[in-house]
């Protein structure tokens, strides 16, 4: 079995939640805060929130959409915000731009909803993430699968979801290593297509193991 020149080193990432001090009690305040909050805030309510609710397979996408529905009773807005796939965004600024655009379009079409007081305010919070290496490393696909069976879902989230925000942009760490470390481009592509919204993170783990098994010696 081919061994990569650089082993894959699994990291564990965990986050604290820091209060930003910004809050919104209506959709116009929500829009204003969305424009000006930090990148760490957008990250917290989208990428981080997805990890926090990793056990859900349907309906929950991000905190913004959830608040639009439960705090403002705006199902159409909630649906549009929920439909954003965070994997499409290599930069937080791009994700913010789309969130702002959706909000602006919604308020333009429904101006009466802008100042309506929400049932509960939305508190903007930031994620403070610390990543530390785990003891798991892999030089071959077999070693990779063995490690993947043992690492936490936080590790999977770090390498499979938030990796797209780090260099090289737009690619998850697993696919990058399959392609550049092991020369397995097809496996790389197949793993990259796994849907994080239709699966739990545990489900993502199983999918990757299943895909990788086709490239393992019998």
């Amino acid at each position: 079995m081919k061994a990569a020149t650089s082993p894959f080193e699994f990291c564990a990432a965990s986050s604290l939640t820091r209060i930003s001090g910004m809050k919104a009690s209506s959709l116009d305040e929500f829009l204003e805060s969305m424009r000006h909050c930090s990148d760490a805030t957008i990250f917290n309510h989208t990428f981080q929130s997805l990890e926090e609710h990793h056990y859900l397979t349907e309906g929950f996408s991000n905190d913004f959409a959830q608040w639009a529905l439960s705090g403002c009773n705006e199902p159409k807005l909630a649906e549009r915000m929920a439909s954003l796939d965070i994997r499409q965004y290599p930069r937080i600024s791009d994700l913010r731009a789309d969130l702002v655009r959706i909000l602006e379009e919604h308020l333009a079409g429904s101006p009466g909803s802008a100042a309506r007081v929400a049932f509960a305010p939305f508190h903007f919070c930031e994620a403070v993430t610390i990543a530390v290496p785990t003891s798991w490393k892999a030089s071959t696909l077999q070693e990779f699968c063995e490690a993947l069976r043992h690492v936490s879902i936080h590790t999977i989230h770090y390498h499979f979801v938030t990796a797209r925000l780090r260099e090289p942009l737009s690619e998850n760490d697993f696919s990058y290593w399959f392609k550049h470390g092991l020369g397995l481009k097809e496996l790389s592509d197949r793993v990259d297509r796994i849907d994080i919204y239709a699966n739990t993170l545990e489900g993502v783990r199983q999918h990757i193991l299943q895909e990788a098994s086709a490239w393992m010696p019998a």
Binding site: A12, S14, I130, V132, P133, T134, S135, H150, V151, S152, H154, T155
Partner: peptide, 15 residues
């Protein structure tokens, strides 16, 4: 919570 969660705690504490 699983071995991996406890391992992560030890990794953080190691620093």
């Amino acid at each position: 919570v699983g071995h991996s969660e406890v391992d992560e705690i030890h990794s953080l504490a190691g620093k």
